[in-house]
């Protein structure tokens, strides 16, 4: 396959970036999108040009490290992660525009690599159950009804990739946050801290500079794990229950 790529190049967070066009040939249909970028980088290295920086690690759709916006869509045209997107989804001769996640709380570090540590800080603010090591009761002490367990699991599938933020026209991290709040809030173990958790996490989210959710649903469309919008509604309900953290 032959492709025309336009890629965002930016040397570091302080200098402005620009779109640069690269033509690439010999891309296999069976390769993944990132392997296509690997190939580009091999060719750039050969020419003595600095390769394009992009993040990836597991390359099997579970670690959440990868992620770029492809032709305006976070993780590209299929509902999966960028590393699991295969070149079969494109046609010979396609033009592909590749940009980093765009959100002010996710500043660009270089080229397509952004800093998502804001998500870690949201978790650090309250996205956990305080269970000190060694103090746990027997795992069977508290049965969890299956429907709760299933909903918790569904929400726990979030891989923290940030595509929801990238896709949300408001730059909101609500889907990510709602997923964690729903996961922990569905479980009996999560009840004692439920109010405090939602208040602390949403506060941190806003302080990081993410936008507010206006229920647009772009996030769930982009989410490679199909986290449903109702986790956001759940979060709203929980926050109301918590008296808006006041």
């Amino acid at each position: 396959m032959k492709l025309a790529l336009s890629i965002w190049r930016q040397d570091n967070p302080k200098v402005p970036g620009r779109m640069v066009r690269y033509d690439i040939d010999g891309v296999s249909e069976d390769s993944s999108f990132l392997e296509m970028l690997d190939l580009l980088n091999e060719q750039l290295t050969e020419k003595g040009e600095e390769p394009v920086a992009f993040d990836s690690d597991c390359r099997e759709g579970i670690c959440g490290t990868c992620g770029v916006v492809i032709n305006g869509e976070a993780h590209g045209p299929e509902r999966t992660t960028t590393c699991q997107l295969h070149m079969r989804s494109f046609k010979d001769g396609d033009e592909i525009v590749i940009e980093p996640w765009r959100a002010d709380p996710f500043p660009v570090i270089k080229d397509l690599v952004v800093d998502r540590s804001a998500f870690d800080r949201i978790i650090a603010a309250g996205g956990f159950i305080s269970a000190n090591t060694g103090s746990a009761p027997d795992a069977h002490a508290t049965p969890v009804p299956k429907e709760h367990a299933d909903r918790a699991f569904m929400a726990a599938e979030c891989i923290g990739c940030g595509a929801c933020v990238a896709a949300c026209p408001n730059g909101s991290g609500s889907l990510f946050m709602g997923a964690k709040i729903t996961h922990l809030g569905e479980l009996p173990q999560g009840q004692p801290e439920r109010d405090a958790r939602v208040a602390a996490m949403t506060h941190q989210h806003d302080a990081e500079g993410f936008g507010g959710c206006t229920n647009l649903g772009e996030c769930t469309r982009a989410c490679p794990k199909g986290i449903p919008l109702n986790v956001i509604s759940q979060m709203n309900a929980d926050l109301r229950h918590a008296g808006y953290g006041r």
């Binding site: 159950i129 746990a136 069977h140 049965p143 299956k146 367990a149 918790a152």
Partner: peptide, 18 residues
Amino acid sequence: DQCVAQGVPFAREYGGLL
């Protein structure tokens, strides 16, 4: 025990047990 206390959503049976 530790993981369940932390909220790790292990697979469960209909009776609610692991």
